Amino acid sequence: MIKHGEKNDVHISLIREAQTVCAIFQDNSMLCNEENEKVIQHFVHCIETHGRHVQYLKFLQTIVKAENQFIRKSQDLVMQELINAGEDVLVFYNDKASFNHFIEMMRSERHCMDEGSPLKYHVELVKLLACCTMGKNVYTEIKCHSLLPLDDIVAMVTHPDCIPEVKEAYVGFLNHCYIDTEVEMKEIYTSSHMWTLFEKSFLVDMADIATAPTDRKHPDRALENYVTNCVMNIIITFFNSPFSDQSTTVQKHLHEARVYWSDSTMDDYDPFSVNIQLKQSPFSTNKFSQYESSWLEYVLCV
């Protein structure tokens, strides 16, 4: 029988093992491209048997991408092993009780996320799933759709207490799993999900950055990095997507936004055969400040 102290020693040893192997595989495309099925199975099994430690996830993140190359074989293997492991490894907070618990975790760790907390584990798990879909991998994209649906992404990102680190993970997942994809995910272009994110999250965070104190004594670096990198990246990817160009819904939103900001009539710009009078702004701009409006004008019209 293993004593408590000995058990902790085993956990520490395995975590250090994961960190060491991670350093060996880091940006080594030749090594990552080799047959690594047993190595992947080993670290997924470590999560199942020795606990949900982020170091195991970070190794799996490392093995699916090296030197800006996405290792398709490793992506497929990692995804399959995660699914095989099930709820012991794949931890989501998508029912009401667990979602509320996750919100409480974000509130308590808003200013300092604990590396060993369930919150940090979930953030790294979502990042891992995003890594498995990078490079347009249709097999992993389909698997991820069932794990983290659009409704769950929007509910999390638009919650007032959602912290930048969680938003970054979820929006990165959204970008790689639903937008920058091999096969069109029609729902993201025909539904209201993206427009809800614009109105209730992206614009709000942009305004927070734009109206922050100019003395820079207490900047929210995490929020700034999220907005200037992650948010800008998904906006550019979404509107530059060939699927976006083909979507009547997206083009109509863009058209109405351009008309609204140009103070012109629908007839001046209408790309459609039937002109429809513009009755209101495409977004509820009365809710936003001049800073948010300026950001929206930049994003949609430049």
Rank of each mutant, 00 (worst) to 15 (best):
S293R: 13
K287P: 02
W261R: 03
D245G: 04
D268S: 13
S294D: 14
S293C: 14
Y291W: 07
Q246I: 01
V274D: 15
E256G: 06
T248G: 00
T249K: 09
F272H: 11
I234Y: 00
S247I: 05
T248R: 05
K279A: 10
F243T: 03
V274N: 11
Q251C: 08
Q277D: 10
K279E: 15
W261M: 11
V259G: 06
S273M: 10
L278Q: 15
F288C: 01
W261H: 12
P242R: 02
Q290N: 13
M266N: 00
T265G: 13
L278K: 14
S262I: 04
I234Q: 01
E292F: 00
P242G: 04
F243Q: 06
S262R: 10
T265Y: 01
Q290Y: 06
I234M: 00
Y269H: 07
I234E: 02
H253A: 12
I235D: 03
V250I: 04
T249L: 00
W261E: 05
P242K: 01
D270I: 06
F283W: 07
F243G: 06
T249D: 14
H253P: 07
F272Q: 08
T285M: 09
D270Q: 06
M232Y: 06
E292Y: 00
P271Q: 08
A257R: 09
Q246T: 06
T237V: 07
F239L: 12
S284I: 15
K252I: 03
N240Q: 13
D263M: 13
P282A: 05
Q246N: 14
N233F: 01
S244L: 01
K279L: 15
I236V: 14
Q251G: 09
W295G: 08
W295Q: 14
D270P: 05
K279W: 05
W295S: 14
D263V: 08
K287D: 07
L296Y: 08
S241N: 13
S262Y: 01
H255N: 08
R258H: 06
D268E: 14
F288D: 03
A257N: 03
Q290P: 03
